[in-house]
Design a protein around this nucleic acid. Structure first.
Ligand SMILES: [Zn+2]
Ligand SMILES: [Zn+2]
Ligand SMILES: [Zn+2]
Ligand SMILES: [Zn+2]
Lengths: 152, 152
DNA sequence: TCGTTATTGATATATTATATCACCTAGTAG
DNA sequence: CTACTAGGTGATATAATATATCAATAACGA
């Protein structure tokens, strides 16, 4: 179990070695995602920063920052939920595989998994047969998590 | 190649045998989706109806109608694109399988395919291992279609 | 025909997202 | 150190998608 701080430190090094800067605001947004149990919207992140750091962060800035963080592979956008999550592999050194996401539609908890490569290839074949090409093999699946099932 | 009209007739019978009604407005919205090459938003459908049938249809009504059409399995919502498509199997008599969608992120053209059942099961296993349960195995994949590739 | 239910309209508002211009700040060159 | 430059942020406007609620109307069954 790593601390939020150590992950952010790692992210900062990553940016530095990339020629980009992980500014304070960017750290704040990333922290918001790291400390959260669930995926957050840009506006929820703006709220978080406003409350936590006592200085309002306009939603526009959050969007720009999220875009930056995505480029740096520190954050992923969940298109199925229109929400954002911190990457689970920030402190891993290996290259980032194409991610697959399980999203609990009840509580927004998210799991970033890696699906069998052969399976993705098979999927890809199906897609090609239909006259399409996978633009991004990032799959997002509409799920219910164990915890939410237990509650019912 | 079936005509839009014949598909709508089929849909009407389907609703009747289901104890529900495919009203004129509902037909108009369904027709909008059937005649379209690509997925449409609720607001685009409202525009279509306004122009084609010369009577404005409030967006709210479109949303309600889309909800109805989804219940009747005549229409699918693409959560990845926040758009809607007519089901490709309205005139098929067989039970509707769980659909999988290929969405061209460039032109919004959509293909409704059926993926290998064993593959879905394998996917499901992966998901269960991660402590989640597939809420709907409807996969939506971010693609580029052949036509859009050729244009470039 | 009357009363009930299903359908639609109208209005307000929430949520997510993009476009644009102005301002500020950190790093660089002189 | 200062002035310049590019990158980063703020502010404002607006678009696009979606939900909530109450009123009006149309269809249906008795
Ligand atoms: Zn990741
Ligand atoms: Zn959950
Ligand atoms: Zn279908
Ligand atoms: Zn296309």
């Amino acid at each position: 179990m790593q601390t939020v701080r150590s992950i952010i430190n790692h992210a900062e090094k990553h940016c530095k070695s990339n020629g980009s800067r992980l500014t304070q605001k960017r750290k704040q947004v990333l922290e918001g995602l790291l400390q959260s149990e669930k995926a957050l919207s840009a506006y929820e992140l703006a709220d978080y920063c406003a409350k936590k750091f006592d200085q309002s962060l306009p939603a526009m800035s959050v969007y720009r920052i999220l875009e930056f963080l995505q480029q740096e592979q520190l954050v992923h956008k969940l298109n199925l939920a229109n929400k954002y999550v911190a990457c689970s592999h920030i402190t891993c050194d290996h290259a980032h595989d194409v991610p697959q996401f399980l999203i609990c539609s009840n509580c927004q908890r998210v799991e970033e998994i890696s699906i069998n490569k052969s399976m993705i290839e098979e999927l890809q074949l199906n897609v090609e047969e239909a006259g399409f090409h996978l633009a991004s093999p990032q799959l997002e699946m509409n799920c219910i998590c164990d915890q939410c099932i237990d509650k019912k």
